[in-house]
Nucleic acid binder design. Structure first.
Lengths: 165, 165
DNA sequence: TATTGTTATACTCTATAACTATA
DNA sequence: TATAGTTATAGAGTATAACAATA
């Protein structure tokens, strides 16, 4: 990794493509989080492009399955998805027969969600495949690294640290 | 239904927003990276909404400033920005007088970028403000935590973990 | 009036691909 | 033919705001 010594006074000293320096940007947590997240998602989808669900869809379906009787908006809030976008995601999942909307009589403004049998099946399938893809995309980390990374991310969010995964 | 801590004074809500369970999702590196990144960006922009540049624009300008004579496409690749999007970003920055395009005579297909004086000024201002915002958004981390987090993110990416790249 | 969800618009960014102008 | 950049389109997702139905 050569440091590309370019004249600091030369206004147009060419820099080779692989010598672009990030400077201290790689010391920024926000920048590094973004680059790492984009890279990991990239790796997951380039490793296996024919997944039946997008990652966001899988997340929604999984949480719906784990929280029967939860309102649509409550799930959206927890997953930091905008309500307006949640409407589109749920509509798409409903059209594919993976989730059902249910308006409870005690509060007819709200919408409860629950998985269909097909939804349960797809989520179970995705769980298995994503576990492997997730691990593969972060294969550079050993078990301790991974646990430590998760602990730090939880700490940023103010979430209680995960037991173990 | 999962245990929902609802007192008798609460309005009837089977699963309140803060009682939605994530299950083992918070043990997924890809999920936690996404949630953490969205949260950090959220905090940065809710802390100070009147920033002169979007984060992506600042990143591009900063790297242009650190790499005089670098091609537009080389910078886009390094920052994992698509060329087609890079064209729009640079055009916007150029219209605002922050960056200049320069077509070198030795290869008239390529475009070199360099900051204008106004661009340099804006970047310097943003650097200062973002350093503080970045730290504020991750204030739950102490110095050791932050260094460790950066080390782990670098490791995922396969980047050298030292100070600068 | 406040809350829940929907619709709509604008904007950011990705994914593709076609296109130009060079090389 | 290949490369560098541009343009265009489709899609995901965010940011906002207006809106309807319900509480």
């Amino acid at each position: 990794m050569t440091a590309a010594p370019q004249g600091s006074d030369d206004p147009v000293a060419p820099v080779p493509a692989d010598a672009v320096a990030l400077g201290d940007l790689d010391g920024s947590v926000s920048f590094m989080l973004r680059i790492a997240q984009v890279t990991v998602y990239d790796r997951i989808f380039s490793a296996e492009a024919d997944l039946p669900l997008k990652l966001g869809e899988h997340t929604v379906l999984k949480v719906v399955g784990d929280n029967p009787g939860a309102r649509q908006g409550a799930i959206a809030d927890k997953l930091m998805i905008k309500w307006s976008h949640m409407t589109k995601v749920v509509s798409g999942l409903e059209e594919r027969g993976l989730v059902e909307r249910y308006v409870p009589p005690q509060d007819r403004r709200s919408v409860f969600l629950r998985l269909t049998d097909a939804g349960r099946h797809v989520v179970a399938d995705m769980n298995l495949r994503l576990d492997a893809l997730d691990a593969g995309a972060t294969a550079a980390l050993d078990a301790d690294d991974r646990a430590e990374l998760l602990r730090l991310l939880h700490k940023i969010l103010g979430w209680p640290s995960a037991t173990s995964s």
